[in-house]
Simulated assay, not measured.
Amino acid sequence: MSDFIAPADRDILARHGLDSFDALWTLRLAAVDEPNTNRGGWSSVFRLDLGDAAYYLKRQSNFLSRSVLRPFGEPTFAREFRNIRRYQALGVPALQAAFFGARQVDGEHRAILVSRALDGWRELAGWLDLWRGMAAEQRSAILAAVAGLARRLHHAGQVHGCFYPKHVFLRDTQTGFEACLIDLEKTRPLLLGRRDRVKDLEALVRRADAWGVSEVRELLAGYLERPQNSAEVDDWLARLARRRRDKEGHR
C-alpha cells in the first residue's frame, strides 16, 4: 500500500518537511504515555503541533494483528486506517486520518498513523465526571448526541467493538452536542443484528457509572426513536440487563 496523505493536510505537512514516512518515523517527540508492548512489539503515541494545526502521531514496530485473511499478521494501524476510511465513506463521525504508511525494514514491520487532534472535544468519560453538576438540559443533549451516534453507526452496518465512554468524544455547540468515535481497530460489520447492537450499547452503559436507569432509558429512547415509556425501550432495557448479568457471570 502506498502512503496516504489527506488532501487537507498535505500542504501543512509538506511545509514542515513531514510529508514522508521517513521524516515522521525519525521525528523526535515526547510520547504522551508509556509505549504499548502487549503484542510483542511496541506502539507509541505523540502529540504533534504544527502552528495552528494539531495532530496525534502514532508509530509502531512489530505490533501486529492476525486474522483469517491475514494469518501472518499486519500492523494494527493498517486495520484502523481502513476502518477510518470506511467510517468516512459511510458518513459515521469519527477521527480523521492525515497520514498512513507501513514499511518492512530488515524484517521489522513499521507503521505510522497520523490523525487530526480532537481539540475542543472532550471524551464522554470526562463529561460523566461532571455529570451530577450539569444542568438537566445539558445531560439530555449529551444523551441525545450519543444515542444519535450509536444509531448512525449501526444503521451504517458497523459494530464499534469498544463502544466505551473513553472512545466517544463530544463537542458542545450552539445547537447541542456533536459526537464522534475514536479507536476503530476492532470495528467490524454488523452481522448478528440486534445481538451486535446490544453488545455495543451494553459495553457503553456498563462503563457509564454516572447514569442511572432513567438516563439509560433516555439513551435507548433516542437510539430507537421511540417514547421512553414504550414497550421497545422496556425490551431493550431488559436485553442490556441480561447481557450484563451474563458478562458478570463469566468473570
Rank of each mutant, 00 (worst) to 15 (best):
S2R: 14
D3P: 07
F4Y: 15
I5K: 08
P7K: 13
R15I: 09
R15H: 14
R15Q: 15
H16K: 10
G17D: 14
D19A: 15
D19V: 08
S20R: 14
L24S: 13
W25H: 06
R28S: 15
A30N: 14
A31L: 03
N36S: 11
T37R: 15
N38P: 00
G40I: 11
G41R: 09
F46N: 11
L48A: 02
D49W: 02
G51D: 07
G51S: 11
G51K: 13
D52E: 15
Y56C: 10
Q60S: 11
S61N: 13
F63Y: 15
R66L: 08
L69V: 07
F72D: 10
E80A: 05
A89L: 10
L90W: 11
G91M: 06
V92Y: 13
P93K: 04
A94N: 07
A94Y: 02
L95N: 06
Q96M: 13
A97V: 10
A102H: 09
R103W: 06
Q104D: 12
Q104F: 05
V105P: 00
D106M: 09
G107P: 07
H109G: 01
R110P: 04
A111H: 06
I112A: 00
L113R: 00
A117S: 15
D119V: 02
E123C: 12
L124D: 02
G126E: 11
D129M: 11
L130E: 14
W131L: 08
W131S: 10
E137D: 12
I142N: 00
L143D: 02
A150I: 01
R151P: 01
R152T: 15
L153S: 04
H154W: 01
H155N: 05
A156H: 08
A156R: 12
G157V: 11
G157S: 02
Q158G: 01
V159I: 14
H160W: 04
H160Y: 03
F163Y: 07
Y164D: 09
Y164V: 08
P165A: 04
H167A: 04
Q174R: 15
T175G: 04
A179L: 09
E185S: 01
K186E: 11
P189D: 12
P189M: 00
G193Q: 01
G193D: 02
R197E: 11
R197M: 04
L201I: 05
L204Q: 08
R207F: 05
R207W: 01
D209Q: 06
S214N: 06
E215F: 01
V216H: 00
A221S: 12
G222M: 11
Y223N: 03
L224T: 09
L224K: 05
L224Y: 00
V233M: 03
A238I: 07
R239W: 12
R239V: 04
L240T: 03
R243C: 05
R244V: 01
R244M: 06
D246Y: 12
D246Q: 15
D246E: 14
R251N: 14
R251C: 06
